[in-house]
Write a protein that binds this DNA or RNA. Structure first.
Lengths: 203, 203
DNA sequence: CATCCTACATAGCATTGCTATGCTATGGAA
DNA sequence: TTCCATAGCATAGCAATGCTATGTAGGATG
C-alpha cells in the first residue's frame, strides 16, 4: 500500500527514552528525537504523541519487572521462593527507580493492569506450591496472599525509592513477609529461616 | 523598609491550587492566578516559582494527613488504636488521592521528611502504649513496628489510589496488620478482634 | 509500470515556566 | 512629619514545550 513503519525506529526511541530516564534528563519531544536522525513526527507516527511514549515506558517497566521475577529460580522451599520473589520485586524498583515511578505515578490503564496481573501470577503460583507442600493452611486463598505480598513489596519499594525511608529499612521486608507467612500457617522458626534465605538475595 | 507580603495571598493561592488539584484542572502558572486578581509575579514573590507551589502542596498534604491521624481517638485498646491509625492513613490517601500522589511522586526533600516523621510519631506512641499494656513483647522496637505499619498502609493506599487494586482490596489491610501485631506478641484471637474494631473505622 | 497511501520533514501554532523592566506604595530613619 | 530606599507587583517578552498543518517522497500493491 505505502511505506511501512520501521520497528527499529520505535525500539530505538523507547530505548533512548529509557536511557534518558536513567540519566535523569528531561524527556521532551525534541530532546527525545535529537541525535536519532528522525524528526519529531516520528514520535507521532509510532506513539501518537508523548503520552504514548510514557505508556510505552510503563510497559517497558512491567516487562523488565516480569523478567526480574522470572529470573528467580524455584527451589525445594516454596516459602523461600516467595520471599525471593518479593526481594526481586523490590530490587527491580531500586535498580530502576525512575522507571518504577513512571509505572505507578499516573493512573494505570487497563493495558498496564494486564501487565501487572501477569507479574502477580508468579506470586500466586508460588503460594500454591507452598500450600501444596503443606506449609500454608488449606484455607489460604493464593490470590489473597499473593496480593498481600505485593502490597508489602510495593509499600517498601515505594517508600525507599522515593526517599522517606533509608535503604536499611529494606530489612523490614523480611519481618513483614515472615509475619504474613506465619499467619498463613507456616511454622514460625522454619518460616523465619526460609524468608531469610529468600530475602538475602536482595543484597 | 518597604512593602510587606500579604499572607492572605499565599493562603488563597495554595487553597486554590488544592481546589484545582481536586477538580483535576491542570495547575499552570497562569491558570493558578487567573481570577485571583494577582498577577503571575505573585507566584514568584510567595513561592519562588511553580516548584515552590508543589512543595507547598506537599506540606499541605502532610498537614492534612497529620490532622486525620490526630482525629483518631485513643481508647483502652492500643492495638485497636494502631489499626485505626492505619485506617486513617489509608482513608486520608483515598479522600485526597491527587494530593496524596503529589506528596510522594517527587523525591521528598528534608522538609517533607520532617513532616512525615511527625506523622510517624503518633504510630510510635501507640506501639509504646501497646507494649506497656503487655500486648506486645518487650523486645519489640516501637519505631520498627511503626515503620512496618506505615509500609503496609502506604502500599495499600498507593495501589488502591492509583488503580491496580480495587477498593475491596482494602480488607487486606486488616489481615496484614493482624499478622504484624501477632508477630509482635499479641494473642491471635484478641488481636483479630482489636484490629477489626480499628480497621472498620475506614468505611 | 502506474498509482495511491503512508511515513516523514519542515514550519508554525498556542501554551508553558520564567525573567527583565519599570512603577508603586510602604515602612523605617531623620 | 518628611523622605526615600526597598520590596511588592504588573506588563511584556523570552526560550522551550507538545501538537498540528502542509508538502514531499518513497515503497507496497494493482
Amino acid at each position: 500500500m505505502a511505506r511501512t513503519k520501521d520497528p527499529a525506529v520505535r525500539t530505538a526511541l523507547i530505548e533512548r527514552a529509557g536511557q534518558m530516564l536513567r540519566t535523569r534528563e528531561p524527556i521532551t519531544l525534541r530532546s527525545l528525537v535529537a541525535g536519532t536522525g528522525v524528526s519529531t513526527m516520528a514520535v507521532y507516527t509510532y506513539f501518537g504523541g508523548m503520552e504514548g511514549v510514557w505508556q510505552a515506558l510503563r510497559q517497558e517497566g512491567f516487562t523488565r519487572l516480569a523478567a526480574g521475577l522470572a529470573r528467580v529460580t524455584t527451589s525445594a522451599d516454596p516459602v523461600r521462593d516467595l520471599a525471593a520473589l518479593g526481594a526481586a520485586y523490590v530490587r527491580n524498583a531500586l535498580d530502576n527507580p525512575d522507571l518504577y515511578r513512571v509505572m505507578f505515578d499516573a493512573t494505570v490503564d487497563l493495558e498496564d493492569a494486564a501487565a501487572a496481573d501477569e507479574s502477580l501470577l508468579g506470586l500466586v503460583r508460588a503460594v500454591d506450591r507452598a500450600r501444596a507442600a503443606g506449609r500454608f493452611d488449606a484455607g489460604v486463598d493464593p490470590a489473597d496472599l499473593a496480593t498481600q505480598t505485593w502490597i508489602v513489596g510495593h509499600g517498601l519499594a515505594s517508600l525507599v525509592a522515593t526517599g522517606p525511608l533509608p535503604r536499611e529499612a529494606l530489612a523490614h521486608g523480611a519481618s513483614l513477609l515472615t509475619a504474613l507467612f506465619v499467619k498463613a500457617g507456616d511454622d514460625p522458626a522454619t518460616c523465619r529461616r526460609s524468608v531469610a534465605r529468600g530475602w538475602k538475595t536482595l543484597s
